[in-house]
């Protein structure tokens, strides 16, 4: 049965790497907004959970010609693949239908209570955007840390995979507010993610890629806009922006001379 066609939204994000200072506020805003569990040792990066993870890249040159750039990496909320594979790489592999691409928002959902923790989606995701709960959420008795938990996002149990949801609950919150005002459509700024909101450098822009009026859909047209690992055909909805060639080159794998050729072609 074919779904009836509604002009859907395609929420997406663009991160201006030239503005990003790598301060980590997005990571923390995300964790605070989404009740991400904190353990006493978060330095075990292979097992800690940071939906919005920060990578640091350098141009590899020697001092004092070293340049540094920070790469915040949320879930890319990949689109359907054009080569007939149909679904984001994590969605097609999920055994229990715990993760799905919503065609009306473009958001890839993750339902913790459905997930059985097989971690096949982690194997499928090249961005490492998916995190497994190796432990139960750490809220020891007597500390009272659980008092800051937000009821808008359900805390996760151990043994399930979680990831960035584009703060989907904020969409729900914005929709409720709109409904209270007898509206159905949302204004551009009514729904943005916690990371975009918190960024002190205002490097993150969030909005509907299908709506030409939204800043994000204008920004992605920049010749300096690019996506991570675009050649893998994952079609991410998270874009990046940088006018530094070396940064753009590090966003994907290139054979020797390939990137330079592309640069020449695009002028």
């Amino acid at each position: 049965m074919k779904e009836k066609h509604v002009p859907g939204k395609r929420y997406g994000m663009i991160i201006d790497l030239d503005k990003c200072t790598g301060c980590g506020t997005c990571t923390i805003a995300c964790a605070a907004e989404n009740n991400v569990s904190v353990r006493s040792d978060e330095s075990d990066k292979e097992r800690s959970i940071t939906w919005m993870e920060l990578f640091k890249i350098t141009n590899g040159k020697e001092f004092p010609h070293t340049e540094v750039c920070y790469f915040p990496r949320p879930c890319m909320h990949c689109e359907e693949d054009g080569r007939g594979h149909h679904q984001p790489s994590c969605v097609s592999v999920c055994v229990a239908t715990a993760t799905k691409l919503d065609h009306n928002t473009g958001i890839v959902s993750q339902v913790y209570t459905r997930c059985i923790g097989c971690r096949y989606c982690q194997a499928a995701c090249p961005y490492k955007a998916r995190y497994f709960n190796w432990w139960d959420a750490y809220f020891p008795k007597g500390k009272g840390l659980e008092r800051y938990l937000s009821p808008e996002v359900s805390p996760r149990m151990r043994g399930v995979v979680e990831k960035c949801t584009f703060c989907h609950h904020r969409l729900m919150r914005a929709k409720n507010l709109a409904y209270a005002e007898e509206r159905r459509e949302l204004e551009e700024d009514e729904y943005i993610t916690a990371c975009a909101e918190a960024c002190p450098a205002q490097a993150i822009t969030f909005g509907d890629l299908n709506n030409p009026k939204h800043r994000v859909s204008q920004l992605i047209k920049s010749p300096y806009a690019f996506r991570l690992l675009e050649r893998l055909n994952t079609k991410p909805k998270v874009y990046y922006l940088s006018n530094k060639d070396w940064v753009r080159k590090l966003a994907d794998n290139y054979l020797p001379g390939e990137f330079e050729k592309i640069m020449k072609l695009s002028g």
Partner: peptide
């Protein structure tokens, strides 16, 4: 033992995602 939620293991069969190779395997 390998899955994070063994008690929910039967979701593979109950909520199967027919696109997943792992479902076919299971």
């Amino acid at each position: 033992i390998d899955i994070g939620q063994p008690i929910r293991g039967w979701f593979i069969f109950w909520h199967a995602n027919i696109h997943s190779m792992l479902v076919e395997v299971s």
